[in-house]
């Protein structure tokens, strides 16, 4: 079922549109974006919009769209969105009602924030100094797998999802 024209979300003047968030991943992206829109920023979030792009060719898929009236994008937010593993998600930057930039955030090759090693015997979980130097290497994009550079433990999407939520 296609989106009806009168259901279109209002345009924003200056800010960011995060589009093509698959419906089942909407709540996670919502939790990621939430800390960025708590300071009196206007945001419009709509769930379950029909999406041809997220469909399987025959049926429409469903997506969430986030329209935020402020340029909230920073590297951490880009990384977190990429870490959801949803490659279809697009970030649109809007200036004066025009899209000036449109891209899919990329998974960083190396990461020393956001993630934490889940191995209970990893030195980074016990040693204060080592804990501050955690580093992860991207070893696979599909599925997303990051590897702890200390103990070799690998973080999969379900581990990463938990860490993305924990951070809030």
């Amino acid at each position: 079922m296609k989106e009806k024209p009168w259901e279109k979300m209002p345009m924003i003047e200056n800010g960011v549109v995060i589009d093509h968030v698959p419906t089942d991943r909407g709540p996670l992206v919502y939790l990621i974006v939430l800390p960025y829109i708590t300071n009196g920023i206007t945001a419009n979030i709509r769930t379950n919009i029909p999406s041809q792009k997220l469909g399987d060719g025959k049926e429409y898929g469903k997506k969430w769209v986030f329209k935020i009236e402020d340029d909230i994008i920073d590297t951490t937010l880009e990384n977190k969105i990429a870490l959801t593993g949803e490659k279809e998600i697009t970030i649109n930057r809007i200036v004066n009602y025009e899209v000036v930039e449109k891209y899919h955030p990329e998974l960083p090759e190396e990461l020393s924030s956001i993630l934490q090693c889940t191995n209970p015997n990893c030195v980074t979980s016990h040693d204060y100094h080592a804990g501050q130097r955690q580093r992860f290497k991207l070893v696979s994009e599909e599925p997303v797998v990051y590897e702890c550079e200390y103990c070799g433990n690998q973080l999969y999407q379900e581990d990463i999802d938990k860490l993305l939520q924990k951070d809030i």
């Binding site: 030195v123 040693d127 103990c151 070799g152």
Partner: peptide, 9 residues
């Protein structure tokens, strides 16, 4: 060391 990654640290 009993912790994994200790030698690297």
């Amino acid at each position: 060391h009993k912790l994994e990654g200790a030698a690297r640290e």
